[in-house]
Amino acid sequence: MSTITARPAGEQAESVTPARSAKRSAARAGSRRVSRPAYGAGIGAAIWLVLVVVPLYFLIATSLRGSGDYLSAGPLSIPEEITLDAYRRAFEVGFLKFLTNSLIVAFGAIILVLAVALPAAFAIVRSKSRVVRIGFTLFLLGLAVPAQAVIIPIYLLITRLHLYDSLTAVILPTAAFALPVSIVVLTSSLRDVPSSLYEAMSLDGASNFQIFWNLVLPLSRSGVVTVTIFVGLNAWNNFLFPLVLTQSMDTRVLPLGLWEFQTQYGTDVPGLMAAVVLSALPVLALYLFGRRQLLSGLAAGIGK
């Protein structure tokens, strides 16, 4: 789930206030009476359930095995004895460092995106300037540029700016490529604000800044949440930018750290799986405590 998951968040833009419509639909679905279950889909779902659960079981079980047990027992056997050794090794390899780096990149990208995208969205919704309109079109075009196609010039830019192998080197392009979707999302959440509100405020003599601060910021809250989750997940999972733009242990982020775990330290599959489990915990926490926001950040409102 890299840029792809992101896009739908953009689509939400097009529909009207996702949270509200989701609530409405849930209510409606509850009232629906389905008397005959769909056996076909049920059987299919059962098969898929196995296909989802087996790798997850493998992930957890392997992370709790000793290295020797992994090589001798089958991949799906129940671990002979449960040990947290693999987790200890994951920490020794530098998991905390990777985690810190990933968090810095995620928050850096979120702050950067919000700082430039919010005022831009305000301008796009309210400005009559042609520059802004053309700019918006450029952002929309940017939706279609695949990041790996421009990785070489980005590498050139970053090395020429003497940013190579720093976390800033990862934050800048990550934020830039998240910008088009974020602007689309924020723009549409601002479009829901009736223009009479803006006009009323401005008739009261409010400056642009006051309008932005007192009206735009509070009203774009749901959009901001969506954008935050979208940018954060993108930065969290990003592999290509760190792969090409960083290399030392000090700047390694989680996804790259997982990969290095494999290529650097040979056969330690349990250690690798322990690191995978650990790396999923922050997102799992988000899923447990903010499921609605996470899912809406991912997809809400794309329906009809």
């Binding site: 090794r89 390899v93 530098g94 030392s248 242990m249 000090d250 650097q264 330290y265 250690g271």
Partner: peptide, 14 residues
């Protein structure tokens, strides 16, 4: 690099 245990100690660009 013989052991995992020693594998992360010494680096330190700067």
């Amino acid at each position: 690099a013989l052991g995992l245990t020693t594998a992360c100690g010494t680096s330190g660009p700067g």
